[in-house]
Every structure is written in C-alpha cells, then in structure tokens.
C-alpha cells in the first residue's frame, strides 16, 4: 500500500503492508530507530512521537493513517552537538540509564510542555480554568506517567523537565 509520510520535515514515499504500524515503518523501513518498541501495545510510551504537535504512541497507529500528518521523532528534535534544551537537560540530570525509554520520554516531554502552556489540565491540576499550568514536580510526574522507565530515572527526568520548563517561563 502506498503511503507518504512526512517525518522531521522530510517526505518519504513508502509502499508497505497496510498492517505496518507507524513505529515499524520508522524502525524497519526508514531506519529511524530512535523511536523504540517496548511493548507494541500502547503500555510503555517508548515509541512516543509527535504528530501534528500531539504526542502519540506510534505503535498504536498504522502508518497508512498518517498520510499528511507532520510527524516529529526524537531524531528531529536535535543531534549530538546540537541537542534540544530537553535533550541537553536529560544528559546533565542523568535523566536516563540504559537510554531505551529516553527518546519516548523526550518526545513526550516536548509535547507535554506545550500542553501545559496551552492550559490543558491534568488529574492533579487544581485550577481547571487556568490559562497555563505551572509545572511543579507533581504535575510533571503525573503528565509523564505514560512513559515507563524501568531503570527508574524518574526523579532525574522530573528535574530535567522542570529546569527546562522554568527556563521557558522566565524567557516569556
């Protein structure tokens, strides 16, 4: 089946089995193996990518459904030597150990910061009417709980995200 995917600003014309998930298209057909497969069932978040600005589990969507959608994977966020602020903060705060959940964490956090800026409440948000949500440890933990980390870098992940979020708030 012919599908055109737009990934990190590049278009890729693919002719693949319609059963191919977005995750497998990335990993097995496009050599974009930054997105990881931890469960293939939407239970771990290792495969998180950003689709038209929203974080999604790429294992839970078929590639052929993503025609015309702007996909950003971890490879599109930054590279060694030119890391995004979140990627850089993860390195400094040791927000990972084995690194396997990390691309998913970083894609998830990238989109999550925008969700908070847009005022989307979470289960622990007190004020549901706020214009933006300010991200304390509790908010960050709650919003990042779709991304499992068995190495359990959670406290460092929270520190890394909070640092970037505070820096953004100051900059605004």
């Amino acid at each position: 089946m012919k599908t055109t995917l737009t990934i990190n600003g590049n278009t890729h014309a693919l002719d693949i089995d319609p059963r191919t998930t977005l995750l497998d298209a990335l990993r097995n057909h496009l050599d974009l193996t930054g997105s990881k497969k931890g469960c293939d069932h939407g239970q771990c978040g290792a495969c998180t990518v950003i689709a038209d600005g929203r974080r999604i589990n790429s294992c839970l969507t078929l590639a052929c459904m993503m025609d015309g959608v702007e996909i950003t994977t971890v490879e599109g966020l930054g590279k060694p030597g030119d890391l995004s602020p979140l990627q850089d903060a993860f390195v400094r705060h040791d927000g990972f150990q084995c690194g396997y959940c990390t691309p998913g964490q970083i894609c998830s956090a990238t989109a999550m910061l925008e969700e908070a800026r847009a005022g989307w409440p979470s289960a622990v948000t007190d004020n549901l009417e706020g214009e933006t949500v300010s991200l304390g440890n509790g908010e960050i933990s709650e919003r990042m709980s779709g991304n499992l980390c068995r190495c359990a870098a959670y406290p460092n992940i929270v520190d890394a995200i909070r640092e970037v979020s505070e820096r953004k708030e100051v900059a605004e």
Binding site: R27, L32, T33, G34, S35, K36, K37, T73, V74, E75, L77, G78, K79, P80, G81, L83, Q87, D88, F90, V91, D94, F96, G99, Y100, T102, P103, I106
Partner: peptide, 14 residues
C-alpha cells in the same frame, strides 16, 4: 548521553 537522548545509540534490533 548525547547519542541516547537523540536516538542515535543503536540497540540490538537496530
């Protein structure tokens, strides 16, 4: 670290 956070460290099925 920079390889891991950018998705360029290669694991087994990569």
């Amino acid at each position: 670290g920079p390889l891991k956070v950018s998705g360029t460290a290669t694991y087994a099925h990569e």
